[in-house]
Design a protein around this nucleic acid. Structure first.
Lengths: 107, 107
DNA sequence: TATATTTGCAACCGAATAGTTTCATATAAT
DNA sequence: ATTATATGAAACTATTCGGTTGCAAATATA
């Protein structure tokens, strides 16, 4: 039972759920209305997202409001950071090249 | 056959491969040496990563060098951007609160 | 030319995945 | 107290996934 954030966001429905509740906390029923699959299927997605702490619950009577755990989303950002360093470097190299060409054209 | 970047980075071995070749282009054999699974298993991972264009090949004689397609990595960053907006807003709110408290303490 | 090396592909296998239907539990409303 | 609503859990199923072994093709080397 692999259950990490990367496996969690691999599923398109789960990414859609994340995007939905990022805006406002929602109940499972309200969330399920946005998809073609059954409420129970959505419930399973919510369990997976909860288990890896990407979302959190807030009980209110018999309803449960799910909302995004923004801090956990940052972990994906952290993983990306190492590659961001690379593409920013390449950008800089391109900038340098363009600068060089501009200087040479001026001559 | 789902084959998108999010499904591609769901597997820990594939994330490791990405991190490996991000530094320098490598042949399948060289990449496989870093893992416990067979060369063929790594080859399958390389195929999946190639299919969703996260990595690219460069043939050189009978060897093939694989390297990271940095532009494609940015797509994950783009998806994250919508949530970054949220956590940066929360950060700002915290900043404002802290600023407010500081001001009140000074009084 | 014969042999070794590098690589990808096909077939197979057990485990995980995403979905369904059915059922149980807890809370609200009548 | 009975009924309706909101939710999760269990059992089952078809498909996908990640791995293996064995083989074929292309290129380099003897």
């Amino acid at each position: 039972m692999r259950r990490d954030i990367f496996q969690a966001i691999a599923d398109p429905t789960r990414r859609a759920i994340i995007a939905l509740i990022a805006l406002q906390a929602m109940t499972p029923n309200a969330i399920a209305e946005n998809f073609n699959s059954t409420r129970q299927a959505v419930s399973k997605h919510l369990r997976i997202l909860t288990e890896c702490e990407l979302i959190k619950q807030e009980h209110q009577g018999r309803e449960i409001y799910y909302s995004l755990e923004v801090e956990k989303m940052k972990e994906i950002d952290k993983w990306l950071a190492q590659f961001r360093a690379i593409w920013e470097t390449k950008f800089n190299q391109l900038d340098e090249l363009l600068e060089k060409m501009k200087t040479q054209t001026k001559k």
